[in-house]
Amino acid sequence: MRHIHPAEKFAFALTTMIICLALSTSITSLLVILLMAGLVIIAGRIPALFYLKLMFLPMFFLVVGVLTVAFSFSPKDTYPFLWGFKLGGYALGVTAAGLATARELFLKSLGAVSCLYFLSLTTPMVEILAVLRNLKLPSLFIELMTLIYRFIFILLETTEKIFISQSSRWGYATVKTSYFSLGQLGANLLTKSYYHSQMLFTTLLARCYQGNINVLEKPYPLSGKSIAMFTVAELILLALGLWFKA
């Protein structure tokens, strides 16, 4: 998928996500999840197991969020609970409607997440940023994204280095030292990041930085074939979604 114009992939991911969110039926969401998984694994050559692991990442937040939707409670006993119990004067339980909403929400979120995964697994961050730039998003916003993206890695690396150096000197041997070490890690991370951003500014200045981070973008040809394929896929998805909804 690397040779496809990033704007095409961006548009595809975005429209699919909109369809998934707008139609808001379990079937459509399921279709989107399967479609994106297929594209990423087959066309994008991402190992299936790795993709599955990635899909499990948002699962925790989703399950917690969706559980609160599935449960309803009422002051009286009249709710048509499938399953429930009493707590003081209140009844707490799961209703059929609640369960349906929860399922819908769960699949919808997972569908939207797979669209984002599709984009980030097939398109490098640089190119996503280039698309956003072409969409005339404010350059401040895009430069912030560029630097934040870079700093996430620096922060992770620094954390890892400090953590290794601490734990190799028994910094996490007991609960007490662990608290102390963790505090030190946090404080050092801040000063190190500050130092790092200062240094980065210096090195940018040394390369004639004038307040704008300007870099080259790779020229990608727009391809009629992939646009057509993406459009057909969207149309089929939309038609199926509408048909199931009706």
């Binding site: 961050m125 560029t146 870079r150 240094m199």
Partner: peptide
């Protein structure tokens, strides 16, 4: 070089 490189490619 860590402090000099900022871009992702």
């Amino acid at each position: 070089p860590e402090t000099q490189l900022f871009s992702s490619s």
